[in-house]
C-alpha cells in the first residue's frame, strides 16, 4: 500500500509530503524504515515520532492505508 507522510519544521526541506510503499500489515516501525530510505537516512528521523491528526502513534501499531500520517521532529514552540 501507498502511505503519504506529511513533513513539518526542519523536514519541510523534503517537501510537504513523502510517499512510502509498504506491505499490508506493516507497522509504524516499518514506515520509519521506509521513510528513512526515502530521506537518505536523514539523522533527525531517529528523534522523530509519527502521528495522526488525533495523536502520536505507537511504533508497534499497524499502518492503515486510509489514514494520513505525519512525522514530528523535536518540538520548540513558545
Amino acid at each position: 500500500m501507498r502511505v503519504r507522510v506529511s513533513m513539518f519544521g526542519p523536514l519541510r526541506k523534503y517537501g510537504a509530503e513523502v510517499t512510502c510503499e509498504l506491505e499490508d500489515g506493516a507497522t509504524v516501525r516499518d514506515l520509519r524504515s521506509a521513510l528513512a530510505e526515502e530521506l537518505s537516512d536523514e539523522p533527525l528521523l531517529a528523534r522523530c515520532v509519527f502521528a495522526t491528526a488525533e495523536a502520536i502513534v505507537k511504533e508497534s501499531s499497524v499502518v492503515s492505508s486510509g489514514v494520513s500520517y505525519v512525522v514530528l521532529p523535536p518540538v520548540c514552540g513558545g
Binding site: 522523530c48 521532529p73 523535536p74 518540538v75
Partner: peptide, 19 residues
C-alpha cells in the same frame, strides 16, 4: 535556521535513540 527542541515520545518508542 530551524531550532532544535524536545523530542516527542510514542508510548512504545524506547527502541530508538534520543539525544
Amino acid at each position: 535556521e530551524w531550532l532544535d527542541g524536545c523530542c516527542l515520545h510514542s508510548s512504545d518508542g524506547s527502541d530508538h535513540d534520543h539525544a
